[in-house]
């Protein structure tokens, strides 16, 4: 059942990204470019998403002892603002500003047909694994 729900949510999330035009890198870059013909519509996407998410989360989900089909909620446990958070978010911002593409829209665009999207996804996966290899290298050097 969780598999089916995850599939359904993946499809609906992708539809949401497509309707809101988050899948269009040019639209995203027009939002990020505050000096040009600024396109505020992506603020509206986030605003409307949060207008629904915040009350439903706090009124319903927070009062639910456990998810319907699994044993526990798996929510992030970290609460402190640390350097990795600030550093990582900045790096992500730079990459997003360069390309206009973030992970969700990259995957939704996979069937769009452009080889550029495939290369983007491959490099993104490599990028995600860089910290692991850096750590392995560091621990080997420390031995």
């Amino acid at each position: 059942m969780t598999l089916f729900i995850a599939l359904f949510c993946g499809i609906s999330f992708g539809i949401g990204l497509t309707i809101s035009q988050m899948v269009n890198p040019n639209k995203v870059l027009n939002f990020l470019d505050i000096t040009g013909n600024w396109d505020p519509s992506l603020v509206l996407v986030m605003f409307s998403a949060l207008t629904l998410f915040i009350p439903v989360y706090h009124k319903i989900i927070k009062n639910k002892p456990k998810p319907t089909f699994t044993n526990a909620f798996s929510l992030p446990s970290k609460i402190t603002i640390d350097y990795p958070l600030l550093f990582g978010a900045s790096i992500f911002g730079i990459g997003w500003g360069i390309s206009g593409i973030c992970p969700g829209p990259a995957l939704v665009n996979m069937t769009q047909g452009s080889p550029k999207i495939i290369v983007f996804i491959l490099l993104m996966l490599i990028g995600m694994n860089i910290p692991k290899y850096v750590n392995m290298l560091l621990s080997r050097l420390n031995k």
Partner: peptide, 12 residues
């Protein structure tokens, strides 16, 4: 973009 988005989302 791809590399930085991957690295940044992981670290952050």
């Amino acid at each position: 973009g791809g590399l930085l988005v991957g690295l940044g989302t992981r670290v952050g």
